[in-house]
């Protein structure tokens, strides 16, 4: 049975630089995470790097997809005011078959 955890913007902000540790430890517990605030491109890059260091026979990696999450002036102001500019979905690849994206939708296929 798939467990999906929705993580609020406030929780993510409180995690500060522990955000990726929190995400990866929960993914390894076989949870699908929906982040109210999308990861930045830099965070996504770091997430891939750190995922690679964890890969084993039992943990083949992750599926990740984000909506929105632009890093322009408008998005920065919205974030500063506590607003949301998109979301990120992340799951372990042994549970999530595919995260297919078009510009405005994400399709999640679970195994």
């Amino acid at each position: 049975m798939a467990k999906i955890e929705f993580i609020s913007n406030r929780t993510l902000q409180n995690l500060e630089n522990q955000k990726l540790n929190y995400i990866l430890s929960n993914i390894k517990k076989n949870k699908i995470l929906v982040l109210e605030q999308p990861l930045t491109l830099k965070e996504e890059k770091e997430l891939i790097e750190r995922t690679m260091k964890l890969i084993s026979k039992d943990f083949p990696g992750i599926e990740v997809s984000s909506l929105g999450g632009g890093e322009g002036f408008k998005e920065t102001i919205i974030k500063m005011l506590g607003g949301n500019v998109g979301l990120t979905i992340i799951g372990p690849s042994n549970l999530v078959k595919e995260l297919k994206k078009d510009p405005n939708k994400i399709y999640l296929n679970v195994k």
């Binding site: 491109l41 830099k42 994206k101």
Partner: peptide, 17 residues
């Protein structure tokens, strides 16, 4: 293949930045 993958978006975004 479908080009709109998070890997492609992450590579392009980090190069652009």
């Amino acid at each position: 293949q479908d080009p709109y993958t998070q890997v492609n978006i992450t590579i392009l975004g980090n190069l652009e930045a």
